[in-house]
Amino acid sequence: MVSAALKSAPASAGVEIAIRDVSHSFDLEGAPLPVLENVSLTAARGEFVALLGPSGCGKSTLLRLVAGLEPPTKGEVAADGQRISGPDPSRVVVFQDPTLFPWRNVRDNVSLGLEAQGLLKTSGARIDATLRLVGLENFAKAFPHQLSGGMAQRVALARALVNDPELLILDEPLGKLDSLTRLSMQGEIVNLWRRAGFTALLVTHDIEEALLMATRVVVFSARPASIKADIRIDKPYPRHRDDPDLVARRREILTLLGLDASW
């Protein structure tokens, strides 16, 4: 049965991600530093999964493995049943810092991936449509120093979305924004996901953000990270932070993280 949260998303646009018995460690002065421990997780096509856990527990490392930026020490990460062995344009990462090129205007920053693939000459309409999608059609010729933080992050989203990704990987993309811009961007990302139907993986430290945006919230332990809980949020959009069910879920997650006595 498809959850109410997923009914408006095109079912075929996303990709299924399967993380199977993944452990990972880094070499620290010749000694292994365990970061992930026996993590198994599946994200269905078109699902929006948020990853929560203590700072430094390994959530962003897991996103790097899914993106194909490095292989796991143990286990397997697969997209639609095919082992991920490297980066692919169908899996796009949006980081906390927009990392825009200051010498390129908005349109040229958005077109960077298409340019790298040799598709720039045939993709003008696609770029324009993506700028409209994120509300930046009137800022195509603006440069990064002329943009607010929220606008710069929308450019980063457009740069990802112009590639028609099957998987959008969001590594704390709103962490540096002010609270009002962050609230607005949360809604914008959800609307883009519902419209396009890609699969989304979000790392965030904000429990409310995860509850407002995701169809599932996966809670990790401290490093080396293992999964403590996998919580389905079967609520329609838009969601409201004072919804009693979400307030109860927030308390549940705080308890899992050992922070319930502090709030």
Rank of each mutant, 00 (worst) to 15 (best):
R249L: 11
W193F: 11
M1D: 07
L36D: 02
P87T: 12
G56M: 04
A142D: 10
V106E: 02
A140R: 09
L100N: 00
A160P: 01
D27C: 12
Q117N: 09
D230G: 13
K121C: 01
V162M: 02
V66K: 06
L33E: 10
I19D: 01
I227Y: 07
E115R: 14
S184F: 00
L183M: 14
L167H: 08
E208H: 07
N191S: 15
A13Y: 00
L157G: 00
D206I: 09
L112A: 14
V110Q: 03
I84A: 07
L174I: 04
M151K: 05
R250Y: 05
A67W: 07
P71D: 07
L28W: 11
D27L: 15
V15Y: 00
P102K: 08
K141H: 14
P238D: 05
C57Q: 00
P244A: 08
D27Q: 13
L136P: 04
P10V: 06
E70D: 10
S40K: 04
V190T: 08
L202F: 08
S60A: 05
N38F: 01
S3W: 06
G14R: 00
L211K: 04
P71G: 07
R126P: 00
D171P: 11
P34L: 07
R159F: 00
A142G: 09
F139S: 14
L168P: 04
L257H: 06
V66L: 10
L41I: 12
R159D: 03
R132E: 11
G68I: 07
S226C: 11
E172S: 09
V162Q: 01
L180A: 10
H145E: 15
D80H: 10
E188Q: 12
G124R: 06
F220G: 00
D97N: 13
S25G: 12
K121I: 01
K7E: 15
E37D: 15
G58Q: 01
R195P: 10
M1Y: 05
S85A: 13
G150D: 05
E252N: 08
H240F: 14
H145M: 13
A152N: 02
L183K: 12
E47L: 08
D260Q: 13
T42C: 10
V15H: 01
N38C: 02
G175F: 05
D245R: 06
L174H: 01
A158G: 06
F101E: 03
S262W: 12
I189S: 00
D164K: 15
I231K: 13
L36G: 01
P87Q: 12
R91W: 09
R104W: 09
L212P: 02
T181W: 03
N105M: 06
G150K: 03
L36Y: 04
R83Y: 05
D260M: 06
A142R: 14
L202A: 08
G56D: 05
R104Y: 11
A158E: 03
I169P: 06
L100I: 05
L63I: 11
D88H: 15
S179C: 02
